[in-house]
Design a protein around this nucleic acid. Structure first.
Lengths: 339, 339
DNA sequence: GTTAGCACTCTCAATGTTGGAGTGCTAATT
DNA sequence: AATTAGCACTCCAACATTGAGAGTGCTAAC
C-alpha cells in the first residue's frame, strides 16, 4: 500500500499522539501539536481518506480518530523510528546482569522477566529454555526411601529437571548404580531431541529386566521433549491493570485467567515461522488467542548456547509504546545472550 | 458479650442473608425469609440495638444492615453451625487424592491449591513445607561442567532443593565423592534445624581445605532454614474477581500485587500463635496486611510427617461463606494428611 | 412488649440538559 | 485545483432532576 508523504506524516502523528494520550485524536489537536503545516480542514480531509483506506477508525461520529490494527501495522512496519533508551534505563539493564549470582537458568529468566516488566510497564512473558535442544549432561538417581528414588536430569545449559520415580524393590543399590552409569555412558553428549524412541527401544532391550523402572525414566525424558511442557515465566502481571483500556473487570479477568494457563501462554509465544530473525510484533487479532486480541506482543528469541532456546515477549495493549518496547527487548536480549 | 436468644437469632439471619446476597438486609426481608415470628417493626428495634452494640452497620440511613467485622466474629465463634459438604464435593476431594502420581510434595501442593480454589470459588494459599522440620535424607553433588556442580538436597518428606554451586578446580572427582559421603554420614537422619552452626563449624574443621565449596553448601542449608524463603502456592487468583466487592480496579490491583509478593503472603499465613490447633479464621482487620483488610482468611496447618509442615488457607471477602469454607478446608486437610 | 401506620430519608436508575470537541460540507480564497 | 474558513450538525460526557423502591425511626394503638 503506497501512501503519500503527507498521509504518512499524518498517520504517524495520529498513532504517536494516541499512544501517548489514549484519547481519540482530532484534526485541531493534530495541527496544534505537530508541525504539519496544514490547516485542520485539510487534515480532516486526509484523515477521512485514511479512514476510508482502513488505517484509522472513528469511535463515533464527531469524535477524533484512533488507529486501526492495520494502522498500527503500517506504523510498526514503515513509520516507526528506532528510539534510544535513556541512559538510566541502559544502566539498569547492564546492572541487572552483573551479578555473579545468576548461575541457574531459572533464576536468570525470573530476573529478566522482572526487569522487562519494570522497564516497559507492561507484562513480560518468557518462554523457558527448550530442553530439547540442549545436550544431555548427566543423569543421577538418588534413593529417597525403600521404594522411591529421585531422578535428576542435568542438561549442559545448566537446566535441571527432577522427578520422583518408583524403584522396583528387586533392585539392589549396586544394580542401580550400574544401570545409571550405563545410561550415562549411552546418552552422554547427545542433544535431547536425539534421544529418539529408537534409542529408547534399544536401551530397553539391553535392560529388559528393569522395564518398569525405565518406563518412568523415559517418561521424564519424553515429557521434557513435549512442547507444551515448557514453562512460561511471567513478570509484572498487574502492570497491565494500569492501562486505561483495562478499566473493565471482565477484560482483566479473562486476561488474568489466561496468565494462569501455562500451555496457552506457551502457544502464544511459540513462533509459527521458525526462520524469522530478530523481533516479531503481533498486533491484536494477529494473535490467535481471543483473550489477547486487544493486546500486542513484542517478542524475540534468545539463545544461550548455539541453538535457539526460548522466546522473550512483552505484552501490552495495542496502543503500547512499540518503539520503546522494541528498544528494551533488543537491549535485554543482547545482554542476556552475553551470559 | 451476652446477647439474648432473639438477638442471636436475628444476627444469624442477617449474616446468613448477607453472605448469600451481598445486599444490605432490611427488617421486612428478614421477617419474610426467616421464621423469626416477629413483625418487621420489632426486628427493626432489635437491629437498632445490634447496631448500637457494634455487630451491625448501616451503610447509610434507610438502607438495610450489614454485619460489621465484630458481627462476623461473633457469628463465626458462637452462631455458625457446621455444614456438611455435598456428596459431589466430598467425591471430588477423595478423587483428587487417589492418583498414584502424586509423589512429589510440590505436585501435591499445587494440586491441592487448585482443588481448594475450585471448591470454594475463593483464592487458595498454601504455605509450602517447612524444610526446617523435615529430616535430612541425602545430599548429592553432580558435576555440571569444569567449575560448577549441582548440589541436590533431599529431605525425607520427599522435598527436594537444588542449587548450582562453584566447585574449586583443585578438587578431583575422587575427593568430591569422599566429601559427599562424609557429609552424608555426618548429617544422616538429622532434622534440618538440628544442623546448627555448631555442627557446621565442626564439619568445616574436618574439611578445612575445601572451605569455599562448603560455604555454598551450607548457604543452601541455611537458606532452607530461613522462614521467608518458604514458597506460597496460589490457586484461583482470579476467583476473587467474581466477588461483587471487587468491582473496583484499585482493590483488584492491590490484591494482585500482593499475590506477586511471596514473602508477604508467607507472613500472612505464618501462625502467630503456634499452639492453636485446628482451623483459625482471620477476619478483615485482624489480618496485618492492609491489602487484605476487607478479606477473611480461613486457615489450618497440615502435617505430612510427625511435625507441622505448613499452612493451608482460603482467602475470600469478609462476606465469604465461612461455614462451607471451613468444611472444605477440614476435609481437604484430612485427606492431605492421609498421604 | 409488640405491632401497625406513617412520614421521612436515601439510593439507584432513568431521563433531561448543557457544553465542548470534532466532524463534513460548502463556499470563498489562494 | 488545492487549501482554508465558516457553519450547522452530531455525539459524548458530565451534571442535574426526577420518581420509584426499600428501608428506617417514631408514635400511638393493641
Amino acid at each position: 500500500m503506497v501512501l503519500s508523504e503527507r498521509k504518512k506524516h499524518i498517520l504517524l502523528a495520529v498513532v504517536t499522539d494516541y499512544i501517548k494520550t489514549a484519547q481519540p485524536v482530532g484534526s485541531r489537536t493534530l495541527a496544534r501539536r505537530y508541525k504539519i503545516g496544514l490547516s485542520p480542514a485539510t487534515i480532516r480531509n486526509e484523515m477521512a481518506d485514511l479512514e476510508e483506506l482502513g488505517f484509522l477508525i472513528q469511535p463515533h461520529t464527531s469524535a477524533g480518530r484512533i488507529p486501526s490494527q492495520k494502522g498500527y501495522r503500517y506504523y510498526v512496519d514503515d513509520l516507526m523510528e528506532a528510539t534510544d533508551l535513556k541512559e538510566e534505563e541502559r544502566a539498569k539493564i547492564s546492572q541487572a546482569y552483573e551479578f555473579e549470582k545468576l548461575k541457574e537458568i531459572e533464576e536468570i529468566i525470573k530476573h529478566t522477566s522482572n526487569l522487562l516488566s519494570l522497564l516497559t510497564n507492561y507484562t513480560a512473558l518468557i518462554l523457558g529454555p527448550q530442553l530439547k535442544k540442549s545436550a544431555f549432561k548427566k543423569l543421577q538417581i538418588m534413593p529417597v526411601d525403600q521404594r522411591r528414588g529421585l531422578l535428576v536430569l542435568v542438561a549442559d545449559t545448566g537446566f535441571v529437571k527432577s522427578k520422583v520415580i518408583n524403584l522396583p524393590h528387586t533392585l539392589s543399590p549396586g544394580e542401580l548404580n550400574r544401570i545409571v552409569s550405563y545410561l550415562n555412558m549411552r546418552l552422554e553428549g547427545l542433544t535431547i531431541d536425539k534421544i529418539t524412541s529408537k534409542l529408547i527401544v534399544e536401551l530397553r532391550r539391553d535392560l529388559y529386566h528393569h522395564i518398569q523402572f525405565l518406563e518412568e525414566t523415559f517418561t521424564l525424558l519424553e515429557e521434557s521433549l513435549a512442547e507444551d511442557e515448557r514453562r512460561v515465566f511471567l513478570g509484572g502481571t498487574t502492570n497491565i491493570l494500569n492501562q486505561p483500556e483495562f478499566g473493565d473487570i471482565e477484560k482483566v479477568k479473562s486476561l488474568l485467567s489466561l496468565f494462569e494457563q501455562n500451555s496457552l501462554l506457551a502457544s502464544l509465544l511459540s513462533r509459527p515461522v521458525a526462520g524469522v530473525e530478530g523481533i516479531v510484533i503481533k498486533i491484536g487479532r494477529e494473535n490467535i488467542l481471543e483473550e489477547v486480541q486487544e493486546c500486542s506482543l513484542v517478542m524475540a528469541t534468545y539463545c544461550l548456547g548455539k541453538e535457539v532456546v526460548g522466546t522473550i515477549g512483552v505484552l501490552g495493549p495495542t496502543r503500547m509504546d512499540y518503539a520503546k518496547t522494541v528498544a528494551v527487548v533488543e537491549q535485554v536480549v543482547s545482554h542476556l545472550e552475553r551470559l
